[in-house]
Simulated scan of single mutants.
Amino acid sequence: MARRDFSASRIPGFATVAVLVFAALYLPIMMLVIYSFNSGDSIAIWEGFSFKWYPVAWNNEQVREVTFRSLTIATVASVIATTVATMAALGTTRRRGTKGQTFIYVMINQPLMVPEIVTAVALLIFFASIKVATGYQGLGYLITAHAAFCIPFAYLPIRARLEGMDRTLEIAAADLYATPWQAFRHVTLPLLMPGIAAGLMLAFVTSLDDVVITLFVKSAGQDTLPTYMLAQIRRSVSAEVNAISTLLLLLTVILLTAFFLLTRKRD
């Protein structure tokens, strides 16, 4: 008998389970997008097709304010996180193995393993003591908290890129009397840029949609777009929230598509 390679798709019921999983994941999102074009106020009753909720959301001054604040925090936090993650990735991949390197790797990725609520409470206690001592109540706390939480998200693609890079060119640069900085600037950094860009986008998306840490760290009047939407839903769910969610979904899809294109292996 001819040998048949194993394929999970041949398992009885595999296709049914796959369809159910995808339906559970994407049907709610599809319904959200569809009802963002509902002409009526209800989110459950279709009353006709209309774009009216998008201008309503755009003309809402509070929505513009929290959106600008969210983009500002996400941009600054992702830049900080990516810079730190790049240095950490270089430190853990471009040096000889030392004792404790596994511990260092675990500590860098610790926010991914610890429940987010634990990190949020820890940051609340830490920043509360600083607020009492300094009296400062600005966005610096949110930016710092988001940057710290986003470091492992930026670190993973950057480290993966470094581990997949051939060190021959770096060694050749050193043989040609390039200083470590020259070798990094002209050889390592250009080759590493796709990983850095991917880490930056992943950190940006993670910061942009964070709710738990933001709720614990923010001061009064520092709502971001996700926390604003959460507050609106607690009062009443309107199609305006659907429109905002759809635009946020579109931005996330664009960034994740770019992330995939940057990190996929080329033949």
Rank of each mutant, 00 (worst) to 15 (best):
L251N: 09
L225P: 03
I213P: 02
T75E: 05
L215C: 03
Y26H: 07
F14N: 06
M165S: 00
I45A: 08
V17L: 15
L124G: 00
K131D: 07
T86P: 04
K99C: 10
A203R: 03
S207L: 03
L124D: 02
F127W: 10
Y177G: 05
D210C: 02
N38C: 04
D209G: 13
L256S: 15
I73D: 03
F14P: 08
S50F: 11
R234P: 08
I244N: 03
N109I: 08
L208T: 10
E240Q: 11
W58T: 14
S42G: 03
V66I: 04
H186N: 11
V79A: 02
M31W: 04
T83I: 05
S207G: 13
A88V: 09
V212C: 04
L262F: 06
D209I: 01
Q222H: 12
F184T: 01
S236P: 05
A120C: 09
D41F: 13
A81G: 05
A57S: 07
G40D: 04
N60C: 03
V19E: 00
S238W: 04
F37N: 01
V106C: 13
A231R: 00
C150W: 06
G135I: 12
V241N: 05
F260P: 10
L247G: 15
N59L: 10
Y105N: 15
L208P: 12
H146R: 05
L256K: 11
R3I: 08
I254N: 14
N109R: 01
L250W: 12
Y155D: 11
M165C: 00
I29F: 03
S42P: 01
T82F: 04
P55A: 13
A120I: 12
P28A: 02
P190H: 02
I125A: 14
M229L: 15
L249G: 10
A160P: 04
I125F: 09
Y26W: 15
M107K: 10
I158F: 04
G221M: 02
Y155F: 15
Y105T: 10
N109Q: 09
F260R: 15
A85F: 01
L202V: 14
L247E: 09
T93S: 11
A147I: 01
G199D: 02
L215E: 08
G195E: 05
A198D: 06
